[in-house]
Simulated scan of single mutants.
Amino acid sequence: MKHFIKCQMKLGRGLTFTLFADSCRAELKISVISPVTATLGSDALLECTFTVDKFTVDLKFLAIVWSFNGKDLLKFVHGLKVLEPRASINETGIQNGDASLLISNVTVHDEGMYECSVIYSPIKRKEYVTLNPQARPEIFIPQREAIIGKEAFLRCCVLGFYPVEIDIAWLRDGQILPGTSTSKPQQYANGTFRINSTVALLPADSDAHLNFSCRVQHASLLGPLQEDIQLLLEEEEKGVSVAALVVSMVVILVFIAVGLLLFRKYAKEKEKLTMSEIRGPRVWTLGEPVQLVCVGFHCPKGVEIKWTKLNNGLETTINPNPMTDCQDTEPLLAEEGHKTATFKVRESRGYVTINSAVIGTPTIGEDEGAVFKCRFFTKDSKKINEEKEFKDFKIQGEP
């Protein structure tokens, strides 16, 4: 006569498996893949598979429990019970030994170690999977102009990265610049960080055609991320000697009427700001953030900046952000579409120099053949209404 063994396994909260069969001698094995890396906002699959030697899995004797920080996320015990809305499991794969957990819309709070417990009564096994959320940094350099012979401070704004550990370096023509200072990381509400790195230098004529680079290394990157700029150099304004000042005063007193007319003409010319061409790469890569930059010089108060994109005959305004300093700027999440950032760099004699940029991740359907426009204007369009275009770029597949 065949003897059956009574096997019982307590699963907690009053749940008990009772099995009368020689499956009590089944061998249960679990395997996992750890750690798992996931981009913030994406879905993460925590793989956990199991095998029952010499037996076909009978769901009546099977239980699966996923837990995190001492809290159960979901259970499969005579049916599936989900305790965390963002957690799910493929029920059709369970009988084939797949107990993997899917977490949707990963946040920084999902970081840590997860426990996968599988019970095939009366045997219990568990393994652990570590989830590491990551967010790729964005780089923006707001100031690109300097005066020859006068100390300048270049700032690199690194935005929206996670985890907090990051390495930032400034380079001149590929050589690391000394004297770099880095601010304390600041955290956004979504858990990502921002940080500023500043370098002091004394620009010379020889710097006019050199690349100054902010290079970032971070866990989310396969290799260093680097933003290159060339300085827009100006001659230092010369002081006026006492003798020249006296002569000038005499001339003004004699020709006061002419002087007033010239002054008014000069003032009007100053209000006609000058814009740089829109700078940016001519080859864009799918999935890689792209930055376009336009600079306005001698901007009067009240000037506004507008970026638009013309594609297939339709011109749309790119998400605007108020003029600010990069220390207060929210991260430009390229995966949410093109966004703008505008910074007041320097103020002199009532006029300001303004850097404005668009950051976005290119797509074939939205960006191929498009024309990007940057416009500086005032509400009185007769006063200022200047515009530059950026076009004829190529989009290539992922490298």
Rank of each mutant, 00 (worst) to 15 (best):
T198F: 06
R194L: 12
N105Q: 06
R155C: 10
L201A: 01
G179F: 00
S117E: 14
E127A: 15
S104H: 09
I148M: 11
T180L: 06
E145H: 12
V118F: 05
A146W: 07
L201N: 01
R194K: 15
D173C: 03
Q175Y: 14
N132Q: 13
N190A: 00
C116S: 03
S104I: 02
Y188E: 10
Y188T: 02
T130I: 07
R172T: 04
S206W: 09
A200Q: 15
P185Y: 08
Y120V: 15
R155L: 10
I195W: 02
Y128Q: 11
V118L: 04
T180G: 11
A146R: 09
W170V: 11
P163E: 10
M113A: 11
I147T: 14
I123T: 14
I141P: 06
E127H: 08
E115I: 04
T180R: 06
A189Y: 03
D205K: 14
K124M: 11
E145D: 14
I119G: 09
M113R: 13
D205Q: 15
A189L: 05
E151F: 08
E165N: 12
S121T: 15
E127F: 05
L201S: 03
I148W: 12
D167L: 05
T182Q: 13
V106S: 01
S181G: 08
V108Q: 03
I176Y: 10
P137R: 00
L131G: 02
Y120A: 13
S206F: 07
I141F: 06
K124C: 06
V164L: 01
R155P: 04
H209D: 15
L202M: 13
G179Q: 02
Y162P: 07
V164H: 00
Q134N: 06
P142K: 07
E138T: 09
F193L: 02
L171Q: 14
V129T: 12
N190K: 03
C156T: 09
L201W: 02
R155D: 07
L202H: 12
Q134R: 14
I148G: 10
R194A: 11
G149H: 13
D205T: 12
P133V: 02
I148Q: 11
V164I: 05
I195V: 13
I141M: 03
R136G: 04
M113K: 07
V158R: 06
